[in-house]
Design a binder for these strands. Structure first.
Lengths: 350, 350
DNA sequence: TTTGACTATTGACTCGAGTAGATCCGAAAT
DNA sequence: ATTTCGGATCTACTCGAGTCAATAGTCAAA
């Protein structure tokens, strides 16, 4: 190589655009696009090589904003959850991110903090950002999706066990799950089973409360005390204290979330009582924390990864205007020690 | 209201654009922009009212992709963390999201899973998406930021205690924090203090190991056993088992993360030993889980929210090409029960 | 009534990439 | 030697919003 006067030096100012690549490779901009996208037109192998070379040398990355503008798709999905520091939701977010990445979508994460105002603001914001879809773990059963509908942005409701006409949704059978957990306590011989129930913004009765009630009724056992409190460790702790202080103390407690159960365990320990000896505990969600509490929690696990994958599938389907689907996943009882089973090998059924 | 024939019905096909608003309000598109942005030119109050009206009626939201293309800014930041289901990182992500939202930025969340390949892929992807900045909690001490540099995208390294020339970074003083935790164990009279250390991809020695070593040396106490394992509950559990099975069992253990400590607690419980009676434990991070373990963990807390806020500030500064800054935050020892303090009111110093 | 000094508004170009339609060129068919 | 065909390539318009230079409009002073 005698000189390099024929190939222009890298311009270096500002980001590299398609035009720069075209100039460097000595072709038109259209060809560059065709090469980058395996475009709608074929390109001669020799030309393709030149272009690929130019791309490599210049370090060209197509501008996503321009692409999004032209194609009307940002290859981005939005996720709205109440609180990413809650283990259940952080696990869900992780699973959704993985499933979305699988299909080349990036994930815009937002926390609503359980506030309806914030939730609404985030929805509008995501709509303005031209996301291709939104996953919403709403604080309400029927969130306001008008902004999304206007922009023709599909949405799937996460963590939602009720079917609502025209809404895509993914959830678990809360009532059935709760039933399994309570039935397991009944199987252990308990007859005074309390409930620590989380509080939702909506006033509708939660499926877990229903499941608890049904299991007791079917077993012909009187309902134990119910305490409503936050779906948090602290909420569980406070609920636990009240449950222990009440007139006739339950011998077993079903908690509507693992976080609450962890708070309850603490309240029980502080009262100098033993789990499961004095009080047995089962709970809901199946997050990692449950396995490492002391004693390990017998809990009803939600198949989070499967749900996340299904959510992404549903969203893609919705984007193609396929009819809304509602999927309910089954839960699985993980028997560990907090229920009274000595080694976690007790019968899973009944 | 007699009729509504005078106001044109909403066009309804496709998303509403600036042009639609302009037509509806009977003005030019430029005026619409001026109104939306408090634009570079003034608009007569009467006209502004007409435009605002049109915007409200039509439900207009400016197209973020077009904006991003024109302005070269997507009002979006990227966050790369190893694992959003790890409580420390999910807390960090939440804090960063809040701080970013404060300034009108949305957050693109990605999980590297501790893999360098994935980390690199995510960096390229974020660069292509024209994010305005990237927060990176890297698996390495000197990650490859070439793609970001090329695109002139600022980056701040999170969870980073080493200063590296030309890199913005935020972190805590790992060594000092570890020191406090170990010194507290020494104060309790322990002289055989083991270390459960997490494993990093890099082979550099971790600040926490340094702090542990220094504290022991300064106290004239021989080094206890070290076990290296994952920064996870399981990692801690396995490390705990090995620490207990070793030739001369430590009477206290310092764990490099709360997650590990939680695993260790379990190993100790399973061995039929008491915490802190037989073995005292202290750890690092200060996540919520530490407060609700049994016994509650004495831990060195990282000021996550303050760090997140500082990270956002640093990123904004870097975007203005201010010189790179490196901020180290102090940690705070939270005394609870796992160390042997009966009520959590023990001296914080020494 | 004209000029000047503004202000409000508009037209038109731009950002970077996708792609339809036009054009170019070489080889096979006549 | 033409004509025809078809693949390769290029030209030019588009997406939606920001913004400057030019224009229209308004009112007070001369």
């Amino acid at each position: 190589m005698v000189s390099m006067t024929s190939t222009a030096p890298v311009a270096s100012h500002g980001p590299v655009t398609r035009k720069d690549v075209a100039r460097y490779a000595g072709v038109s901009t259209a060809v560059v696009s065709y090469v980058v996208n395996g475009g709608p037109k074929r390109v001669a192998p020799a030309t393709e090589a030149k272009v690929q070379d130019a791309i490599r040398v210049l370090g060209y990355r197509p501008n996503a904003a321009a692409r999004a503008l032209k194609l009307g798709s940002s290859e981005t999905l939005g996720l709205i959850i109440p609180d990413n520091s809650n283990p259940f939701f952080s696990l869900l977010a992780h699973a959704v991110e993985d499933a979305a990445a699988e299909l080349g979508f990036a994930l815009l994460l937002t926390n609503s903090g359980g506030s309806l105002t914030k939730e609404r603001r985030h929805i509008r914001n995501l709509a303005a950002r031209q996301v291709d879809g939104v996953f919403l773990a709403s604080v309400l059963f029927e969130p306001d999706l008008e902004d999304l509908a206007k922009a023709d942005i599909p949405c799937v409701l996460l963590n939602n066990d009720r079917e609502t006409e025209g809404f895509n949704s993914i959830g678990v059978d809360l009532a059935a799950g709760a039933r399994t957990a309570v039935e397991h306590l009944l199987w252990h011989g308990h007859t005074r089973i309390g409930l620590a129930m989380g509080t939702n913004v909506s006033n509708d009765i939660d499926g877990r409360e229903l499941g608890w009630r049904e299991a007791l009724r079917d077993a012909g056992v009187a309902e134990g005390p119910i305490i409503h409190s936050d779906f948090t460790r602290l909420g569980g702790y406070l609920a636990g204290q009240r449950l222990l202080a009440g007139p006739d103390r339950p011998t077993a407690i079903f908690a509507s979330s693992d976080m609450q159960a962890i708070g309850i365990l603490r309240a029980i320990h502080e009262a100098g009582l033993a789990v499961p000896g004095d009080i047995a505990v089962t709970s809901f969600d199946g997050v990692a924390d449950a396995e490492y509490s002391w004693p390990a929690l017998t809990t009803v696990e939600q198949p989070v990864r499967a749900m996340a994958a299904a959510a992404v599938t549903a969203l893609v389907g919705a984007a193609r205007h396929e009819p809304a689907q509602h999927r309910i996943f089954p839960t699985a009882l993980h028997v560990r020690q907090s229920c009274g089973c000595p080694d976690g090998n007790a019968p899973q059924g009944a």
